[in-house]
Amino acid sequence: MQFQVMFKKELLENWRNFKWIWVPIVFIILAIMDPITTYYLPRILETVGGLPEGAVFSIPMPSPAEAVGMSYAQIGSIGVLIVAVISMGTIAGEIRSGVYEMILSKPVSYANYIMSKFSAYSLIILLSLIVSMIASWYYVSLLFGDIAFSTVIVSAVFYTFYLLFILSITVVLNTLLKSPGLVAFLTIIIVIALNIITDIFSHVLTWSPLMVSNHTLAFLYDGSLTSELIGSVSLAIIFTALLLVVATMILQRRAFD
């Protein structure tokens, strides 16, 4: 009951500050940008010119699966940044402004407070990713050839868990820091650091939540559900849940000055 009330408030807030509109749009742009420019690149170069007479070059056309992979590459970098930016002030901003004190003076459970925020942003991220991948699928089928719609959508669902894991890192930082900007900055730093660690030890850390993106691409290429994909998605879910519990505990114990 209380969760629903707070969840609805988050949805309404994100509607009034237009996050429900701009986040999906930006995701769509990210998803279709690379496949489209890649497709038109030879023609663009031809029109712009500047190449020496008789120069011949051939850019190999990517396969449809590779083209969809380009969408994920963009979302994996700039999309992650957007996840951090949209959620950076969700708790930290409320603590800083003082609204937090007003809300928490009512008998509100800390878990509901955290969960309502996490759920509301999860929904935006899931929706944005799904619509952007539908857009990607549409253009890729149009320009590069057929790829199964279901494969693309299932890959997007897997990928969502990767983004939710990042969202949970932002939520924890939200409970620790007062500055939204710092929350976003540190989230990015942590994701980069985790990526480097995962890359270095990639042979041991095949189930790392950060490997979800790699395994999703593999799924896209051959459509097989590997144990690595299932494993890393499961770990991503477990870590997300743990981080949310940690965030709740931090908020409960935090002494406010």
Binding site: M1, Q2, V5, M6, K9, E13, R16, N17, S97, G98, V99, E101, M102, I103, S105, K106, P107, V108
Partner: peptide, 26 residues
């Protein structure tokens, strides 16, 4: 409880805010 510097969700109307906190208080 009324804090010294009451801060609200600026994007809500007064009525919406009262209904919201009322529901939070069961």
């Amino acid at each position: 409880y009324l804090p010294q510097f009451p801060v609200f969700h600026r994007w809500m109307s007064g009525f919406e805010f009262l209904v919201y906190v009322g529901q939070l208080a069961d």
